[in-house]
């Protein structure tokens, strides 16, 4: 049954943009996958290991700015900046993780918020990173390596491939010692340590992995959108989005973040297009409402709810 559902989902994912063609649909579909990548990356530390970060946009920013700098500084295709962005994100995760992961629960979360805001202000004052104005990708494609397309369709399939890779990795991790250890840490750090788990080290590994994949999403974002500034690249709202998508679908589950993205991204894009420029504030209100609903009614997210129905029927 589960295999059948998965096969159908993959088939739909492959043909969806061909059936629902049109610039708007294609763009929303591509963005949905992009956010699903970011939320799934967040899920490694926030979901499986239970260390809720609201600073993940910093790693996203590493990827986006890495790609942007590759073009603005060295004239390379933006995607060539991906290793730089991922490297920077992993390094930053290691530096930040050692002191902050010692904090437990809400204190870790608060530290990540502070860090993200600090970095946002910092980025807004660094000329190489475009300061407050931001950085642009190539305006017209110079070669196919610029990955600059007028249609969103190529991005859709690129993102689909990356997401599939990330979910495959996550699936493998879930079944490995690392997956068991992260869930144990989420359950009780004290018990985890008594069973021989080097808790600090595993949390750090998870944060570094999560940061690296989040940076991939950031680089892909720049490749598609072609522009990044402190608000879009390291603004706190994006951190919150990753968290809410994962929590809505089911944090610490393989497909939870994807399901969250499938619901929230179209919702946001539609409300933005209906309300125009004035709509951006509404997003905050909607997210606030969703946080409230999840917290009160279904802390396990949609997948836990469906699993509950499944067991009853």
């Amino acid at each position: 049954m589960a295999r059948f559902v998965l096969a159908v989902a993959i088939a739909i994912a492959l043909v969806f943009p061909l059936v629902f063609s049109g610039a708007f649909y294609e763009r929303v579909a591509a963005l949905t996958l992009l956010y699903a990548i970011a939320a799934s990356a967040w899920n490694l530390i926030g979901g499986y290991a239970g260390q809720v970060s609201v600073g993940h946009v910093v790693f996203f920013g590493c990827g986006a700015y890495g790609a942007a700098v590759a073009y603005s500084e060295w004239g390379l295709p933006p995607i060539a900046g991906l290793p730089l962005g991922v490297g920077a994100a992993v390094l930053l995760a290691a530096l930040v993780g050692v002191p902050t992961l010692r904090l437990s629960g809400h204190y870790f979360t608060m530290a990540t918020v502070a860090l993200a805001e600090l970095i946002r202000i910092l980025v807004g004052n660094v000329p190489v990173l475009g300061a407050a104005v931001g950085l642009m990708g190539p305006a017209v494609p110079r070669s196919v390596w610029d990955l600059s397309f007028t249609s969103s369709l190529p991005y859709y399939y690129l993102f689909l491939a990356v997401l599939a890779g990330l979910l495959l990795f996550t699936w493998w991790m879930e079944r490995s010692r690392m997956g068991f250890y992260l869930r144990a840490i989420k359950g009780s750090e004290r018990a985890a340590r008594s069973l021989g788990i080097p808790v600090g080290r595993y949390k750090l590994y998870a944060l570094m992995l999560s940061a690296g994949f989040t940076a991939v999403a950031g680089a892909l974002y720049l490749v598609m959108v072609g522009f990044v500034d402190p608000d879009s690249g390291v603004g706190i709202l994006l951190s919150v989005k990753m968290l809410i998508m994962a929590a809505l679908g089911g944090a610490g589950t393989l497909f939870g973040p994807l399901i969250g993205a499938l619901i929230l991204v179209p919702l946001e894009e539609i409300s933005n297009s209906l309300l125009g420029g004035q709509g951006s504030g509404v997003t905050f209100v909607v997210y606030g409402g969703i946080i409230l609903l999840i917290a009160v009614f279904q802390p396990g997210g949609i997948l836990a709810m469906v699993a509950g129905w499944w067991r009853k029927s």
């Binding site: 068991f180 250890y181 869930r183 144990a184 989420k186 359950g187 004290r190 018990a191 069973l195 788990i197």
Partner: peptide
């Protein structure tokens, strides 16, 4: 190895997976 007075069960996991965590050592 030790146990706790108030059990620190990994409640999100199955009984078997709880024991797996120990076995992975």
């Amino acid at each position: 190895a030790r146990t706790y007075q108030v059990p620190h069960t990994f409640t999100d996991m199955s009984v078997g997976d709880n024991v797996m965590v120990g076995a992975f050592l």
